[in-house]
């Protein structure tokens, strides 16, 4: 494999090195690439949102299929323009109310079901005979204790004394071990991303790696 002759690969390699240079320190080249990145990604976002959210959900139903019901969201959306003047800005409260109200309503039972009901169900502890082995029971017991002590940690109206108690401390210990585990688990995934970039530099671009 030889050094790449594609102009796009050279550009990508330059951009990659420019981003890495930030690790050393903030510099002119990085700042230029950052500005380029922000501009491209903002432009990309706007086009994609218009194409995938506005066109199918407002434009087509209203202006192509002439479904007049869609005049409602269209007018609600137009009210965003009110924010351009301080005098009319209060009108934006109307589309906010629609989005926040319907979002909060739809979320209420759903979040309770997935976060509370399902998790409580998963935590239920039964007699040791219910489990295939003593080990499985002990594991279920540890989860049980962990969930209860973490819940204790979140008590807001508890006194100062319980704050230092063994139950809350156990809860904190569970939280920290869990966080450590997630942290460690992510390391490998991030390293593989770095390896991917290095492979691009030394393989695709320079042709040293195969």
């Amino acid at each position: 494999m030889a050094i790449s002759s594609s102009i796009w690969v050279w550009i990508a390699a330059f951009l990659t090195l420019a981003v890495f240079s930030f690790l050393y320190k903030d510099n002119i080249i990085y700042k230029m690439v950052e500005a380029l990145f922000v501009g491209v990604s903002a432009g990309y976002s706007i086009v994609i949102i218009l194409k995938h959210s506005f066109v199918p959900n407002i434009w087509k139903p209203l202006f192509v299929s002439h479904n007049l019901l869609y005049l409602i969201p269209f007018l609600l959306g137009l009210l965003f323009f009110a924010m351009l003047s301080r005098k009319t800005a209060y009108l934006t409260h109307i589309p906010f109310a629609f989005l926040i109200g319907s979002g909060a309503g739809f979320a209420l039972p759903l979040v309770f079901q997935t976060n509370v009901m399902a998790q409580v169900k998963g935590t239920m502890l039964f007699a040791p005979s219910h489990y295939p082995s003593l080990g499985a029971f002990i594991n279920a017991l540890i989860i049980f204790i962990g969930v209860l002590t973490v819940l204790f940690y979140f008590f807001f109206s508890r006194g100062e004394k319980t704050n230092r108690g063994i139950i809350v401390k156990t809860g904190i210990a569970f939280i920290m071990i869990g966080f450590g585990a997630s942290f460690g688990y992510t390391v490998m995934a991030r390293l593989s991303l770095l390896v991917g970039r290095l492979y691009f530099l030394f393989g695709t671009w320079l042709g040293i790696l195969h």
Binding site: N115, Q119, V120, N139, I143, G146, F154, I175, I177
Partner: peptide, 22 residues
């Protein structure tokens, strides 16, 4: 085991808090 317990505990709290906020 411990990681799952921690997640469940936090999720239940979040569920209660989010429901109340809603």
């Amino acid at each position: 085991i411990p990681n799952l317990a921690q997640k469940r505990g936090i999720l239940i709290g979040v569920g209660l808090g989010a429901t109340a906020t809603s």
